[in-house]
């Protein structure tokens, strides 16, 4: 069953007199129980895309799409109240900064108590809600959940808070979980632990995940399929193994090479020259063009996302020239 189907998503932000296009023609779908790794560098539109799906963008965002549907239900026509009813319990998001994600003047328990109201647990009272909360906290390997519930956010470390936030989302039992670079603000050891928790959870619960990251190694470990974003477009999408072993887009290929170099401890990493701003808001040619080693005059036209191989899609007219050699 299709959990999520996004077709032709365009996002712009209105400024004082003009508007700036951030994402264009983003399309992907996600099956139940699958994990999609959404990968790309900062500013590529990963977070904005997911926030648009959950209708969490600020007021000046203009979101258009041919279709955004969740379990077959069209999300585009929903009003604020109908969206509130779905957020949290049907689809939820885990954010980058665990410290800022909690209200600093309220205890962790308070956050669970009120999240419990979203699940209509109020009738069961505090005791039952806290029992459920403790179970969720155990799930993310918090040793003493009862104590954690009594703590204020400033009394816990970033890693602990990220676990609490993951637990809060688990506690709501949504069927789609967006994890937005949940390990970016944590140190390496804690990052490892959090990724392992996600790896364990995805097999244990029935939810679909969108895991946003800029780390190819993490995406490889935990996702079933990978979508690579560049400058607001999906440039390649396919099964994790296909993408890793046989990338078709020059950008994906560069990302994977960098990840491999990191693993093998080379002294100097290969850098993709230039920066992402050269591709933002470009409509009449390939957005990766200015940084692409294969770039030629033929690339200076609008490039469509097209099927390649058995299941994959790529947004590059020269993708075939990579066939077979990585």
């Amino acid at each position: 069953m299709k959990m999520l189907d996004v077709k032709g998503l365009n996002i712009s932000f209105a400024l004082d007199s003009s508007s700036i296009n951030i994402c264009s023609d983003v399309s992907f779908s996600l099956a139940q129980g699958k994990v999609l790794g959404l990968i790309g560098e900062s500013g590529s539109g990963k977070t904005i895309t997911c926030k648009a799906i959950l209708d969490l963008l600020p007021e000046n965002a203009e979101v258009e799409a041919k279709e955004i549907s969740f379990k077959g239900q069209n999300l585009l026509g929903l009003n604020q109240k109908e969206f509130d009813a779905m957020r949290g319990t049907a689809m939820a998001m885990i954010f980058q900064d665990p410290v800022g994600s909690f209200n600093p003047v309220k205890t962790i328990g308070w956050h669970f108590l009120h999240a419990g109201k979203r699940r209509n647990l109020k009738q069961y009272g505090r005791g039952r809600i806290f029992d459920d909360a403790e179970a969720a906290l155990k799930e993310v390997e918090i040793a003493n959940p009862r104590e954690a519930l009594k703590k204020y956010p400033h009394q816990l470390s970033g890693g602990m808070l990220q676990r609490c936030l993951i637990a809060l989302v688990l506690f709501l039992k949504p069927s789609l979980i967006v994890a937005d670079e949940p390990t970016t603000n944590l140190d390496n050891l804690v990052e490892r632990q959090i990724v392992d928790i996600f790896d364990k959870l995805r097999n244990k619960i029935d939810a679909s995940f969108i895991f946003i990251t800029h780390d190819m190694t993490i995406a490889e470990q935990i996702s079933d399929e990978i979508a690579v974003m560049y400058a607001g477009q999906i440039v390649e999408h396919g099964n994790t193994a296909d993408i890793i072993d046989n990338p078709h887009h020059p950008y994906t290929r560069a990302l994977i090479n960098t990840a491999r170099e990191l693993e093998s401890d080379v002294d100097v990493l290969t850098e993709i020259s230039g920066d992402i701003t050269s591709g933002l808001g470009v409509h009449d040619k390939c957005r990766f063009g200015p940084r692409c080693p294969l770039h030629s005059a033929e690339c200076d036209k609008p490039i469509e996302l097209r099927n390649i191989g058995n299941h994959g899609q790529v947004r590059c007219i020269k993708a075939e020239s990579f066939e077979g050699h990585v």
Partner: peptide, 19 residues
């Protein structure tokens, strides 16, 4: 950030503004 998190949990605007 915690305001967006509260929104992503599905809390109403009234709740978020107050608490």
């Amino acid at each position: 950030d915690h305001v967006i998190v509260a929104k992503s949990i599905g809390h109403s605007y009234k709740f978020i503004f107050l608490h």
